[in-house]
Simulated scan of single mutants.
Amino acid sequence: MARAYKFRSIGKTLAAAALASAVALGLSACGTSGSPGTAFIVNGESFSETDLTDTVTQWAELSGVEVPRDQMAGFLVETTVRLQAADEVGVGLSEEDVQQTLEGTLAQANSDLSVSQIIPPVREMFRDLLLVNTVQSGAVSEEQITEMNTLISDASITLNPRYGTFTDGQIQAPGALPGTVTGNLLEEIPVG
């Protein structure tokens, strides 16, 4: 049985903290909503198990750190819902800035990858980093932040239960110690 989650509102600090956690870490049989191979769905946008595996693999290649699948799923859910909200309210993120950030990361990592080889989910993680930096810089109006928070609050998220369970307003990783979580922006809503 898949679980659906609804995001609570986030402010500048919470968005930064969530992304900072992802960056600090080195930034299947059961499917979601009856779709085998689905890791999660955010506002109708489906993310496959294959996409999740590819993201974990490429992130490890770039950073030297393999992020566990359940944590990566949490990061990608947060990234997806924030970027969808930003796009909806017209918070623009320069593709040139994303490109420069990726080029700098590849050079620093001494990676053999080119920017064109970065898969979309990893590219979106870098785009999300730029979003958080843009919000923190004050370049986003309070009105836009409020609109984004409303969209985030209203997001429909369905998470494959293999990536965790919902406990006390948080996604708790399978086998995690009490209090260890991959994110704290989710609130469970009934499915069905």
Rank of each mutant, 00 (worst) to 15 (best):
V81S: 01
F75W: 08
E49G: 03
W59F: 08
Q172P: 06
G138A: 10
G90C: 08
T79M: 15
K12L: 06
G183L: 05
G44H: 09
C30G: 04
D168E: 15
V91C: 09
L102N: 09
T38R: 12
F126T: 03
L102C: 03
S28V: 15
R162T: 13
V91Q: 02
L83T: 02
V91N: 08
E78Q: 14
Q100A: 15
Y5P: 03
G92D: 12
E124G: 01
T57K: 02
P174F: 08
T158H: 02
T134N: 04
P161L: 10
T158M: 00
S35M: 11
L62R: 03
L102G: 06
M125T: 05
S48E: 07
Q99M: 07
R3F: 02
T13A: 07
L19V: 05
G90F: 06
R123V: 11
Q108M: 03
V115N: 06
A109F: 14
N110I: 03
G92A: 15
E61N: 09
L52C: 09
I145A: 01
L159K: 01
E66R: 15
A22W: 01
D112I: 00
S48T: 11
L151V: 04
G26H: 07
Q58K: 11
Q58Y: 06
G104I: 10
F7Y: 06
V77G: 00
L62F: 07
L177N: 14
G179W: 11
L19A: 03
C30V: 04
F47A: 03
Q108F: 01
P121W: 07
K6G: 05
N160S: 14
L14Q: 08
A155L: 12
G138W: 07
G92K: 15
E66G: 04
V23G: 07
Y163D: 05
E96T: 14
Q99S: 14
I157W: 01
G164T: 07
L52F: 00
Q71K: 10
T32H: 04
V181T: 15
V89I: 12
A109C: 08
G183T: 10
S114H: 13
S21W: 07
G11P: 01
L113E: 05
T79A: 10
A39I: 00
Q100M: 13
A60C: 12
T101P: 06
D168F: 05
P174K: 14
P121K: 09
V91R: 03
S153E: 13
F75G: 05
A176H: 12
A155P: 06
E88K: 14
S21I: 00
I118Q: 09
F75Q: 02
L177D: 13
V81T: 14
P36W: 13
